[in-house]
Design a protein around this nucleic acid. Structure first.
Lengths: 167, 167
DNA sequence: GTTGAAAATTAACATTC
DNA sequence: GAATGTTAATTTTCAAC
């Protein structure tokens, strides 16, 4: 395969991302006015970034407390064996669980970090049973109950200058 | 003030949220077809949920690796004093930092959990300097480098049945 | 980048529960 | 009275030039 598929984001692309990360309902015409481009040019760039995988999705974010999930918990999980098949099994069971909003595989004193939302502590206990106690590969886990979601977005910091100019 | 402002989400609202959490570019007409409502009715409900704060935002999600931020790190921070003013100062400095994507105030063995994205480990060291070493209220911090973002969305689990039927 | 057609959003109105 | 569906006007999206 050719080595063409690269980032190649210029400062216009980054300016567009900066806006869409805050509000992706902003009309292309408005974006164009702000960054000095026509609406059509903005449209083409947005579509290309979506196809290229730079933009991975467009989501509405819901306040968990308003839909019956008032409790957020950070869980650190330590596993027994790092055997690939066992690791993968854990990975999959965590990712598949509907209460698990985020799941990271990490190095350091823990192996996984999960961010879960639940309706009640009883529900959390049920989660620990099905995800941790019933999985013999889980050595231990630490529960950190979230008292305040100080910052909970997914907006990525964008470079002032394009990260790398291709060609 | 009246005690009227309540959730009052019905199953239509939840069905709409379920769709918008996956893709908020879905046209109201399409949503209407799927759940059995007109486009106008969908539009009104979406607008109301936005105003009510049920929908907290509409975002495009960007792949951090594609915009020069290939490293994700989970950081647990322990602080010295829980004095309110000092706590608030820490809170604010974490939230204000552009590299900090998420910040939670938690109970348990840590006080804050941060999720940060950076361009390099040198940048992470710079971050630890400005956020932790220069803040004398930080007792210690643990670094968990993310090797795999297994699940990184913010979609909240929605109840099958409405959480509470008002009136 | 501009133009023009198709589609979506949005407001206004009549109607039903 | 609150919420729905229909209609119509406005705006946006999107393809062609």
């Amino acid at each position: 395969m050719p080595e063409s598929e690269q980032d190649g984001l210029d400062s216009f692309d980054l300016a567009i991302l900066d806006i869409l990360q805050r509000d992706n309902t902003t009309a292309h015409r408005i974006i164009g006015e702000r960054i000095g481009l026509s609406a059509a040019a903005v449209h083409r760039r947005v579509r290309r970034m979506h196809e290229n995988g730079v933009i991975t999705g467009n989501f509405a974010v819901v306040d968990p407390g308003r839909v019956g999930q008032p409790i957020t918990i950070v869980v650190e999980v330590e596993i027994e064996s790092e055997r690939l098949d066992l690791l993968d099994a854990a990975r999959r069971s965590f990712a598949a669980d509907r209460s698990v909003q985020q799941c990271y595989y990490v190095t350091g004193e823990a192996d996984f970090v999960l961010i879960v939302t639940v309706a009640s502590m009883a529900d959390y206990e049920a989660l620990t049973r099905r995800l941790f106690f019933e999985n013999h590969n889980v050595r231990r886990f630490r529960t950190l109950v979230v008292m305040d979601r100080i910052k909970a977005g997914l907006a990525v910091q964008l470079p002032e200058r394009p990260p790398r100019r291709i060609r």
